[in-house]
Simulated assay, not measured.
Amino acid sequence: MNNRIGVDAGGSLIKIVYEENGRMHFRKQPNSELDDALQWLKITAPNKPIYLTGGKAGTIQANYFPEAKGVDEFSAVCEGSQYLKMREAMTAGEPYILVNIGTGTSWFTMKGEQYERVLGSGIGGGTFMGLGKILSEVDSFSELVSLAAKGDKGNVDLLVKDIYYPENPPIHGDLTASNFAKIQEFPSSSSADKMASLNNMIAETITLLTVQVASIHNIHQAVFIGSTLAGNNPLRESLNTYCKMSGIDPVFLKNGEFSGAIGAMLK
């Protein structure tokens, strides 16, 4: 593996992994900087074999690295996550649901060396960025995350406690009864409140689908990876809370957004 480079070119980001002196290095850039990233790679590692995965792998191979090898995206993500899970000294043989939150979201069942993609959704990082820009007129991922961390979803979402007031609700009052449902308050709510609501809606949707997959396949652990989680503590915290409330053990892999690139390199 020492001499290889893995590249995962997805819908929003290009992720590069390489090993040097026994240490793994990571690099990622938005697709708008694709040419810069690949020119850097040509200069940095002109003689190393390159393994490509992701939706834009074919384009990169045709235009930049004709000698590169293509790797199936789903197998790369699954094998990369297995590698990271073992690296973090977790039990590799325990079945788990792999949840890859990229531009959209994919679910895989992971049972030993066997893996299968069982579900996909258009809800993911692309939703966060696209609706985030509409709601806040901000197009920077880090700024949108910062807004979400400062906001109060209760100023936008109709909560369970709102419906039952002044009575005590039969379930946790801060759970969402309906996303973005406080129509009268919406015009006066802040961009931060709207982003908190959006982040929460994404977390709730992903958790509900994860719980359904886990129930069908009788698996109790979910491993979350993907670029949408990188630096997005509000989303991570919400997923952690909702999964535990639902009886799912959530795991967040360090450098999980590079699973695809690592898996390509391992191939």
Rank of each mutant, 00 (worst) to 15 (best):
D139T: 04
Y18M: 05
A261G: 12
N21H: 11
F26C: 02
Q82K: 15
Q114C: 07
K69E: 13
F186T: 03
N63H: 13
M265I: 04
F26P: 08
Q114K: 14
T207G: 04
G112P: 11
E237A: 15
M90I: 05
E116C: 14
Y64H: 14
Q29D: 15
D162W: 08
N218F: 07
K267D: 04
Y83I: 03
L52W: 01
I97K: 01
Y242D: 02
L98V: 11
I171A: 01
G256W: 10
L52P: 07
I97R: 04
V77D: 00
V17Y: 07
E67V: 00
D249F: 07
S197F: 07
L38T: 08
E143F: 03
K48N: 14
N31D: 00
F74W: 08
S136N: 03
L34R: 10
I225D: 06
M129Y: 01
L158S: 05
L229H: 05
D193L: 12
N47F: 09
A264D: 06
Y164F: 15
I171R: 08
I219G: 00
D152V: 06
V145N: 05
L119K: 01
I219L: 11
L175E: 12
A68V: 06
E88H: 05
G256C: 07
E257K: 02
N63Y: 03
S32Y: 02
F141V: 03
G124F: 13
V138G: 00
A222K: 07
L253Y: 12
A214T: 14
S142T: 15
N31C: 02
G126M: 10
S246L: 12
N155G: 07
I16G: 08
I262H: 03
G102P: 04
S75N: 06
K161S: 12
N255I: 03
I202K: 00
N240M: 11
E185F: 04
K28D: 04
S178K: 15
L266T: 06
M110P: 04
P95F: 11
V77E: 01
S106L: 13
L209A: 08
L266Y: 03
N3L: 14
F180N: 12
G226A: 10
P166W: 14
A196F: 00
Q184F: 12
E20V: 01
N255A: 04
D162V: 05
G132T: 01
V223L: 13
L98W: 08
E20R: 10
I14Y: 05
A196L: 05
E73N: 10
S81T: 15
S146Q: 13
I123G: 02
E73L: 13
G124Q: 09
S246W: 12
G55I: 09
I101Q: 06
E67F: 00
K69R: 11
H220M: 06
I248P: 10
V99G: 02
S142Y: 11
N21F: 04
A45P: 00
L52N: 06
N21L: 12
E257R: 02
Q39P: 00
F65H: 07
G263D: 03
A9T: 11
G80R: 09
K150Y: 00
I123T: 14
S215Q: 08
V71Y: 06
Q221P: 02
A89H: 13
N31G: 05
L208N: 13
P46D: 07
E33W: 00
P66T: 12
E113S: 09
C243W: 09
M110Y: 05
A45G: 14
G125T: 10
G130A: 15
N255W: 06
S189Q: 05
I216H: 08
A148W: 07
E137T: 10
N255T: 03
